[in-house]
Design a protein around this nucleic acid. Sequence first.
DNA 1: ATGAAAGCGCTAACAG
DNA 2: CTGTTAGCGCTTTCAT
Lengths: 335, 335
Amino acid sequence: MTNIKDVAAMAGVSASTVSRVLSGKSYVNAQTRQRVLEAVKQMDYSPNVLAKSLKMGRSNTIALMVPSIQNLIFPDITRGVEDTARKNGFTVVLCNTDEDVEIEKSYINKLKKRWIDGFIVCSMMPGSDHIRVLRDEGFPLVVVSRCSKEDHLDAVIVDNYQAAYNAVNYLIRTGHRRIALALGREEVILYRERCEGYLAALRDNHIPVEENLIMRETNGNNSFYYLTKSMLAGDSWPDAIFATSDPKAIVILHALHDMGVRIPEDISVLGFDNVYMSALVEPPLSTVAQPLYEMGVVAATKLINQIKFKDQTGLLPAPAVDILNTDLVIRKSTR
Amino acid sequence: MTNIKDVAAMAGVSASTVSRVLSGKSYVNAQTRQRVLEAVKQMDYSPNVLAKSLKMGRSNTIALMVPSIQNLIFPDITRGVEDTARKNGFTVVLCNTDEDVEIEKSYINKLKKRWIDGFIVCSMMPGSDHIRVLRDEGFPLVVVSRCSKEDHLDAVIVDNYQAAYNAVNYLIRTGHRRIALALGREEVILYRERCEGYLAALRDNHIPVEENLIMRETNGNNSFYYLTKSMLAGDSWPDAIFATSDPKAIVILHALHDMGVRIPEDISVLGFDNVYMSALVEPPLSTVAQPLYEMGVVAATKLINQIKFKDQTGLLPAPAVDILNTDLVIRKSTR
DNA sequence: ATGAAAGCGCTAACAG
DNA sequence: CTGTTAGCGCTTTCAT
């Protein structure tokens, strides 16, 4: 593998000169510059990134931490991140954490030692101080999806409260009264916010909250299969179910089909996310669309900006929260 | 960030001694060993991976190249790869290539310069010589899913021909005669093999091949929406559709629902892959199951073995093809 | 405008 | 058993 010295030798200059023409940060005589460029081309030389990183303390690598790439919302976000990273010369390391603090910590420690340039994390939890400190330690960091107001962190999110409020309001406006909620783990802030939107919409429409219409996740999305069945085993059915994520909604659709319930005639189902599959299930799922791919793009862009800013000033820019728009898309699962 | 010299100073030894106790490759006096270990713990030291990589020519990083993580089969494979990599101290760089040769090449070039330890590629095509040469150049390489007999490469695949043959045979045995085929791009070897299995099953059962029952992908999986509709617009319907992948089958289900076709009463649908979603669509999809997660695990294991072998001998081991078992899982989309 | 030299943090001969 | 030295490939003062 040809290195900078080989090129220097061929061009009859020193390694520093080669470095200079390649970096373009310093003036080099036009003639020697040409000779160097030629040698580079001849030998098909490109610099050893590792050596460069070691010297510069910059690796052009970013980490993307997700709970699991198998969860339908993360492939889209990931794609947005990766496309943006690639276009900017960055490489992305994928970390599945299963929201396990130990795995997260061990990844973080390992990556720090690799001079990782920054972190995008989609697995933030209230107790995730090991993540919050990253910024204090000087690491560029952007949090996606899950972020509470108190966190003084760069983030890209949607207004979960308002989106859920609007969604439930829509359900009410279209004649639903007994609206069940499929609620994800409440430690996850976005589920809590979506729940609050649901509650507020009911309240503002003078509809009483019925505790037995609230299904709480016990053990992954599949728990809603059983929760739905047991809710419907009771005597009073809901006329709609608002699911706090599309994967949950899809499981609920499945349970409903199994029970012979007609959708939306008997029960409407409304999801949240608009993952790609939502349009393809039967009936096509009405849902609150988040711009998942774009969230990835924005997150990566913000992170790269932080990195560049830090390059120049040695400091991190003040954090800013980007709130992206949601969109209620009505398909066939609601009447 | 504390380095090996700091530790050495604290323990009152030289850097090499610290290196030695940490690598464990050389005997060190038990006492000094203790002092070093203590210093390491005190300072919470862990080595700089970059420097180590530069020195050793090994980065403990592997690349995973997929067409797109948004395709439902890749999250599972990816998860298998990543879990296995992590357990073995490797980090994975995710590369979405859209099967674009230029993107693949640019990734490969970049990663080589990073001393990437090896490649797992899921986007192999007949013309992918830029990938095949990787092995010749000494890079550990394992190909997943797409691999032709002539390639003298490490690979993990399933027997697509036989699996498709069995699947179509099942359809015939259960009373279907006019079996349509939803065929993916024929450059992709696995689709060609699945097609051949389909053809052979028909032939062996003395069922004539009807060219107008073969739908050929034109523009992504969604093209099967229109292909299905236009096939059914003709006068003679199939009584079953065999899709060469689950994402295609799911699109077909969607088209069929749109047209009011009953599944499986009017038409049976059989997929291939058994992605997670298959069990959740309506009706739950009968399909040929590939062990996707396991394929990722096996691929990563094979790659890591190659890497270790190369470490010790300087050579790559002889390539071997692992053929994993498929399984016909019958759910509700076939009668 | 260019070269020499130092050093990023680590490991591996080579001495002793 | 341990320290000294050199060097992985690059960038960046500091001289010239």
